[in-house]
Amino acid sequence: MTPDIWVMITGILAASALGLIGSFLVLRQNGMLGDAISHAVLPGLVLAFLITSSRNVVPMVIGAGLFGLLTAYLTELLSQTRRVYSDAAMGIVFTLLFAVGVIMVALFAEQVDLDQECVLYGEIAYTPWNTFVVGGTNLGPRAVWILGSVLLANLGFILLFYKQLKISSFDPQMAVAVGISEKKWHYLLMTMVSLTVVSAFESVGAILVVAMLIIPGATAYLLTSRLHTMLLLSVGIGIICAVGGFMGASYFDASIAGFMAVVGGIVFALVFAGTLIAKRIHQTRYTSERQHIAETISG
């Protein structure tokens, strides 16, 4: 396969995995948590790197996952004191962890081959050349394998625990009342968000992660009133962004990740405008019908 196809597949896998799990963040009005987690995992990545002195993906993902959880946990802890609003608590926790990560990178950069660039700003255009080789056989780009597994993990998580995610997102009190621990599912969801964000971050870069985590879900939310339809649409919208962004980037010879995010913004704007217009038409028709009825009655 040509490198272009691999880049597109990577984009599609990343956008689908992020869109699926991000839909739940949108519904929990917790959209910025993904942003926070994506920064706060840096110390976890550095620690994993220092301990194993390799850039093996498994310890990296574990380290990042732990720090993602820590972000969610510390934010919860700080806002529960009710002396700080939850968004401010999140802002404090993630900038602190991110800053610690930056200092760690600066301190240990001498000993290890690691810098902010390679940890934070993965570049989707390079993914075809970073391949996964087992026993001399080239199995294709590493990013496709990683993101494919993450997408499958997210699908499995959502399919198996659909009812828990649904009830704890809609009505946490009722979840507890029927014996479904709202806390447990919150942290499990945050673990999946951390895993997804980190895997995608490493291969496709920061802009694409933050954009694809929220835009597909937020757009899908405007289009449907059913949760499962929203999840399916978020994947569809993610694919449109990936393919459209890739084509735009090739045409203008610009940043692929940047273009994918821009297409996401355009799709959202179009859908938003569309739903507003549809609502207006509906209202006008309704008003004219009422007028018609009023005239018929009085006439």
Partner: peptide
């Protein structure tokens, strides 16, 4: 994004 029947079914979860 759920309907009335979805909400009521939650009582069975």
């Amino acid at each position: 994004p759920i309907n009335a029947l979805d909400v009521v079914t939650m009582g069975r979860y």
